[in-house]
């Protein structure tokens, strides 16, 4: 049984009918073709699905799409177009803070969230701030460097 769902995604008003069991990342990926957010585990551990819902970072795999009724959702695609994470993106590229790039959209959301709460974090605070986001490729050092770089700019 599908339910009606209305929300705003990346500033765009969306109406859809979804099965209640569909989690928010699947909704973004499968229904809206916003494939920038990834599902690396679907049990809340890896952070690849991190997105912003009503301004707060959440695990997209641990929220049902129907729970986002009326919500304002931002994903890497919208954050890119709005320029909200441009400095971080530039620093990630310059510092090679990504390899396969699978973790990167979620990592950018975590980094932006961290810097909003703490504009000049120490390296330890950066490490803690992104500790809910796995990266299997980089070993994290370059990511910490890139975030540190942006915080100093």
């Amino acid at each position: 049984m599908k339910l009606d769902l209305s929300l705003t995604v990346n500033g765009e008003a969306i109406s859809a009918r979804v099965e209640p069991r569909m989690h928010l990342v699947d909704f973004l990926r499968e229904v809206l073709d916003l494939t920038g957010s990834h599902a690396g585990c679907e049990h809340g551990v890896c952070g690849a699905c991190s997105i912003l819902v009503n301004g707060e970072m959440v695990r997209g795999c641990l929220m049902l799409a129907v729970q986002a009724e009326g919500a304002e959702v931002w994903t890497v695609e919208g954050l890119t177009e709005s320029g909200a994470i441009a400095a971080l993106q530039e620093a990630f590229v310059a510092r090679n803070a990504l390899q396969c790039g699978y973790c990167t959209p979620g990592m950018l959301v975590a980094a932006a969230t961290l810097l909003k709460a703490n504009p000049s974090p120490t390296r330890e605070e950066i490490r803690e701030g992104i500790s809910g986001n796995y990266c299997r490729c980089t070993g994290y050092h370059a990511i910490v460097d890139a975030i540190e770089e942006v915080s100093r700019a």
């Binding site: 069991r21 989690h23 679907e42 049990h43 695990r59 795999c61 929220m63 049902l64 729970q67």
Partner: peptide, 24 residues
């Protein structure tokens, strides 16, 4: 009952829980 979902939705995704109705 569905509150924050941070345990329950993970359990649903893993099919460790399969309620017929979720009350949000």
């Amino acid at each position: 009952l569905l509150a924050g979902g941070q345990s329950l939705v993970a359990a649903l995704n893993l099919r460790l829980a399969s309620p017929s109705v979720l009350l949000d």
